[in-house]
Write a protein that binds this DNA or RNA. Structure first.
Lengths: 195, 195
DNA sequence: TTTGTAAGTGAATGAACATTCATTTATATT
DNA sequence: AATATAAATGAATGTTCATTCACTTACAAA
């Protein structure tokens, strides 16, 4: 039998995300995608059941890659400061390396597609929950709901990362993240979180 | 001449946002919208030049309404605590009153449409910048870039608001915002921001 | 009461859409 | 070398799309 061309699948995946990032979900048509990826429209249907399946599979793949990078060298026994810093660095690294993945990811997360039955649940969940609980037990973290922890610890982080990826922020000029600024912000966030 | 039916315009606006929130930008077609709004497809083109114009006008209208509510009773001379608390309360009120507007807004902000030439620049910008500068001058706020202030002060807030609007958060169960939790979070954020 | 005009319409148009299908191609196995 | 099989294709299908147009309707001004 004929062997699958890995390049074709990768090309479809990459071009699909590029199209969505540049033109939105309504800018993605199967025929345009086929042309951009250099394959026949029918080829896409070898890899994906239909358009919906393409979108949800793309999201699940990105989510898996992202989780893998975010959890690198992480374990929930780490101190609050060490663990949070590691997560920020891991996430930042991924986002800077694959900005298109991240922008696709964010667009998807804010769309109704996120409620699709085929979307996998986040695998950090357990890890993150344990990390929070351990830090509270150790007295490094004030007692709070995990969602409030998440909002303060990561909501602020993602907001600043999105500024970094824009050419002009809502405040006027451009904004570039640096290691120093990231450390400054970590200290601020830690002050908020400590008991 | 015949007078414009305000109800028609409002109906088109509301149904368009509902459709986008429920089915995404690719779920909005002019014919489906016309049917849902109870008008002829051609009527939509009396109010909006084309589909693109409909989307950008919707966003601009929501942004204006949101800015109006957010700035209610606000002035940039307010103390950090008072000003931030007022802004959170104002924004929360708007979001709870018009969740569909907010979800449309967030979906739009995370899509490439946000770079469209007809999208108006935020009018809080000046107000917000002055508020930050005043608070720094008064010594209530550590010296920092406005984007970092924004991320810590509002990024965390919006994250938690989005949790509130989801039925299940990434941490497993549902999460409901309350006045108490909002005050708890405000104190945390203030700790982070203070010099 | 007549008239001018913008609001509002349903049906039509051609383009673009997602998906399928009959056929060809490449390769691993025999 | 022959065969089996999944990969890959281009053209075709029927549907839905955004937009337009010839027409009707409602109302303010005359």
């Amino acid at each position: 039998m004929r062997i699958r061309d890995e390049n074709k699948e990768a090309s479809i995946r990459e071009k699909a995300m590029e199209m969505i990032v540049n033109e939105g979900f309504d800018g993605l048509s199967m025929q345009k995608l086929a042309k951009a990826a250099g394959v026949s429209p029918a080829t896409i249907y070898i890899y994906y059941k239909n358009r919906e399946d393409l979108l949800t599979q793309l999201y699940n793949e990105v989510q898996e890659k992202f989780a893998e990078v975010a959890l690198r060298r992480f374990n929930p026994e780490l101190s609050l400061e060490e663990g949070l810093w590691l997560q920020w660095k891991n996430r930042m690294k991924f986002i800077l390396e694959y900005p298109v993945y991240f922008q696709f990811f964010e667009q998807f997360r804010n769309s109704p597609l996120i409620n699709h039955k085929d979307i996998q649940k986040n695998e950090f969940r357990e890890n993150m929950k344990n990390f929070v609980l351990n830090a509270i037990k150790r007295g490094e973290l004030a007692k709070m709901e995990p969602e409030i922890f998440w909002a303060v610890a990561y909501g602020s982080f993602y907001t600043v990362v999105k500024f970094h990826l824009q050419e002009k922020t809502m405040m006027g000029g451009p904004f570039k993240m640096t290691d120093t600024k990231m450390k400054q912000m970590l200290q601020m966030v830690l002050k908020a979180l400590k008991p």
